[in-house]
Design a protein around this nucleic acid. Sequence first.
DNA 1: TATGAATGAGCATTCATTCAT
DNA 2: AATGAATGAATGCTCATTCAT
Lengths: 186, 186, 186, 186
Amino acid sequence: MDHDERRRALASAAADAVARNGLDGVKLSDIARAAGVTTGALAHYFPDKDAVLAAALEEICARLVARIGPRGARLKLEDFAGALPLDEAGRKDWRVWLAYWGRAPFSESLRAIHQQYYLDIETALSERFAAASKTPRVVASAIIAAVDGVGTRATLEPEAWPPERQTALLAALLGPLFASLKVKPA
Amino acid sequence: MDHDERRRALASAAADAVARNGLDGVKLSDIARAAGVTTGALAHYFPDKDAVLAAALEEICARLVARIGPRGARLKLEDFAGALPLDEAGRKDWRVWLAYWGRAPFSESLRAIHQQYYLDIETALSERFAAASKTPRVVASAIIAAVDGVGTRATLEPEAWPPERQTALLAALLGPLFASLKVKPA
Amino acid sequence: MDHDERRRALASAAADAVARNGLDGVKLSDIARAAGVTTGALAHYFPDKDAVLAAALEEICARLVARIGPRGARLKLEDFAGALPLDEAGRKDWRVWLAYWGRAPFSESLRAIHQQYYLDIETALSERFAAASKTPRVVASAIIAAVDGVGTRATLEPEAWPPERQTALLAALLGPLFASLKVKPA
Amino acid sequence: MDHDERRRALASAAADAVARNGLDGVKLSDIARAAGVTTGALAHYFPDKDAVLAAALEEICARLVARIGPRGARLKLEDFAGALPLDEAGRKDWRVWLAYWGRAPFSESLRAIHQQYYLDIETALSERFAAASKTPRVVASAIIAAVDGVGTRATLEPEAWPPERQTALLAALLGPLFASLKVKPA
DNA sequence: TATGAATGAGCATTCATTCAT
DNA sequence: AATGAATGAATGCTCATTCAT
């Protein structure tokens, strides 16, 4: 396993540790244990704790992008529901995701990661809707905001928000928007 | 100033301190300084730091309720835009609001406060839309999710999201929903 | 109730509080509560906490003297058994008594109280045995040491040392000494 | 130096610090300084301060056992005088010993250590006197109580109790008991 | 590279003491 | 005299960081 691959693995372990202990509660030793190494080993890959946590955020962003972003020109509402915290893995990622929101306004580096993420997602979505809407950027922003809003609620009240209820709410928010698109999905 | 009033004042100061230093970064001494007292004084009103922070969250919830919740049967979209982080005071509250989201999944008491807040808001909104919609609860949830989604984005990227852009996005999300209401506002 | 009487009452309450919380664990507020006053009231009678605790020790010494010391020319072994922690009240006093032993070597004022107590007791006992023994001072010291030794053990292991066992051990230690006295009790 | 050995060394340093500052007065930093380490280092060996102090008590018990307990079938009175605070080292240990007596009634773990110590000592002594006395357990208890009683007095009034006076008092208490033993020492 | 023991600053918490009422 | 709120110093504990092996 080479250096960069190792770094990725450590960042992923860090994300897991954050999911388990909270962003405030994680200790470097939690992260090290999750990765199966000692704290000293982390020092070889990251200058300090903030760097580890930043890498963990990038890992989370990558996972979310993988869920909402990729794979062909999907334009149907159901495609975006996949980004919601519908299963345990999703809830875990969302807990981490929410944790970083609270810290980003106080950390330049975290803010930059968030902005890059939103830029990437919004751009990707815009391009998909370029043909279907005259204001693809607004459509993209609306999808992002709706997913964030529903996902937030579902993360804070997981028992009250089973997958169907999340999906229904997302449909209530985005349904009219999708109905207005000039070009329907194939 | 009586005991309860004092407690409220300290909780409000705590919210300010959290807005300034972040939920992870606040020290009890920051809170005490913001309130113009010493740390020892806090001990007369709260058993420990967690209790101070929980009280601060309740204070923030009360502020948000005051903005989105009250005052007559408002049913127009613009009414809810007032809950967004449109000015500096709003941004400050939202920073705090986001910070608690990240911690709630790891704290039973914080989770309970959040749930009570959402219950209150959703119930109040539902009642307002009882006559106008066959599914007032869905309408209420949609409003909440839209506001949370837009507010989150605006809080993470304050420069990119001036008031008009927030309002426009909220309108894009909620406009069709409001248009479908059977009863229009007077 | 006059000033001195009040002081005595507070000192007694302090001794009770020490019995309940330990000498390390007592807070001034425990003592105040035990006395049915507030901490501020204590300040009118004692300059500081050490003075309160010293007064409590004097109270305990007075109680022990009352048990071992007084009332006529008692020379029988059984008379001194009464000073042992035979009942709950005795155990309580002994817990306090032991607690002060640990602190005395580090406090000039406490040491002085202890020395005065031992001086009083030893003198009183010596006088009683002046006619019965050629070395009444040694007899007095032996009684004191035996009572302290047995009482200590009984305080540390209260369940293992019921009254009869304590008395038997005291008899084993002091019996021969008493048997050797020239003058027997009437 | 391995982990357990290190722990022992720290416990011993703790006992020294207690002897110097008192059980109430010792700070973790005193203990750390006595051991030549920092407070943080203590955390690698003990979960909290109470654990450090408990280990220090065990160390003191071991020292006392080493003085009173071991080395062949000693049955002479003078053998037990060695356990008294005859020199500065002995006085130091006794100060600590007394300090723990005061706290034991309020700490389950300290009480357990004391009881184990007394059990060990009493058993060891009983076995030694099994052939010499019909009631070896009483003999053992008497020796323990006499040593505790004399040692306590000598610790509280060190100037008034030079070695000879302590030994004389011990002889006065235990002499008759030893004289009654069926089997004399060789 | 990896280990993990040691460091030491940082912080919440406790509580004796003070003082305005 | 009595109250009890406020003070603020004291201290145990945590944990990111360092470094010798």
